[in-house]
Simulated scan of single mutants.
Amino acid sequence: MDFKLKGKVALITGSARGIGYAEAQLLGGEGVSIAVNDIDAEAARAAADQLRQQGIAAWPVAGDASNEDDVQAVVNGVIGHYGQLDILVNNAGIGVKPSYTVETMPAEAWDAMIQSHLRSTFLYTRAAIPHMRKGGFGRIVNTSSMNFTGGGRPGVSHYAAAKAGISGFTRTVAKEVGEYGITANAIAPGYVETALIAGFSDDMRQRLYAQNPTGRTCKPEEVAALVTFLASEQAAFINGALVCIDGGRRDFYWGD
């Protein structure tokens, strides 16, 4: 299928590794020019080099996704380098370890999680919309989580709150920008085979597999395929959606 993405420009936050890198690979393979964003400048450069070796147009741009000045500088840099911005994938965010119950959670841990996931999504979306509106085309894909759609799990209330906020934010943005040829959607992945999962014990991984109707966890390229579709012309009438990619496991509980 031709997704009609050739010539588009995508900014993917947190794309030096993991899910973000897989998204860069698949979008890049469709002819999209990629801005590889990461807080780690060296990691962003290395990822962009790897993508270029695969024949993908890639440019590294470092910046803290939760810092307002950095975000504006990154978006300005993308416009200066590529001349346009058509696709924004908000993928950046910190992990949930250590976990805390609400009673034991330091306010600093709460703030860091909200800033890394929810604030960063807001900042990048706000900065990108004017350029998308100018071009008459835009695709915004935000990353929620099964930890929201599944009702959360003990110990990660800050993460669940951030991901729930992203979903609500996305639906409102969709209503604000739809008339300009821009769509905003969110995805809610389950556990994905990244370095985080690789670091789990064999027993924990087997529990994750057993708890999923498919008997496995998600592959990064499967998330990337969903993002690529939502970025395409074929998905032009999908706006304000929250699309689960969790193998059907929405009612999970960590201890089951």
Rank of each mutant, 00 (worst) to 15 (best):
A43R: 15
D2Q: 10
T121I: 06
D246Q: 08
G28S: 02
Y253D: 12
I87G: 02
A107M: 14
I56M: 06
G150P: 04
G165H: 03
T13L: 03
R207Q: 15
G29V: 04
V156Q: 12
G181M: 07
E222L: 02
L88Y: 00
A65G: 09
S33Q: 11
I140M: 01
C244Y: 00
S66L: 08
A35M: 03
D70H: 11
M132G: 10
D111W: 07
G152M: 06
F169Q: 05
Q53S: 10
V96D: 11
A109R: 12
A186Q: 05
P220F: 06
A174P: 04
N142F: 04
E30M: 04
C218A: 10
L123N: 01
I39F: 14
N67A: 11
N67W: 01
T214N: 12
H117S: 01
N37C: 14
F229M: 04
A224M: 04
G155T: 01
A57P: 04
A224H: 02
T143G: 00
P60G: 07
P213W: 03
A65T: 15
A235H: 05
R126W: 02
A231Y: 02
I129H: 02
E233W: 06
R216M: 05
A160K: 06
V96K: 02
S33G: 13
Y124G: 10
A48F: 01
L85I: 12
G215C: 01
G190K: 05
K163T: 09
Y124V: 03
A73I: 10
D86M: 05
A73Q: 14
V71Q: 07
A195R: 14
M132L: 13
R17Y: 12
N37A: 12
A195H: 13
Q234K: 14
W110E: 06
K219C: 05
I166D: 01
V141I: 15
V223D: 00
T104K: 12
N147L: 02
H81R: 15
G248D: 08
Q54S: 14
D40H: 14
D111H: 11
I34S: 06
F148V: 06
L118C: 07
V243E: 09
A127Q: 09
N76P: 04
A164Y: 09
N185S: 07
Q54N: 12
S15P: 08
V74M: 13
L123R: 07
A73Y: 01
T143M: 14
R153M: 14
Y209C: 03
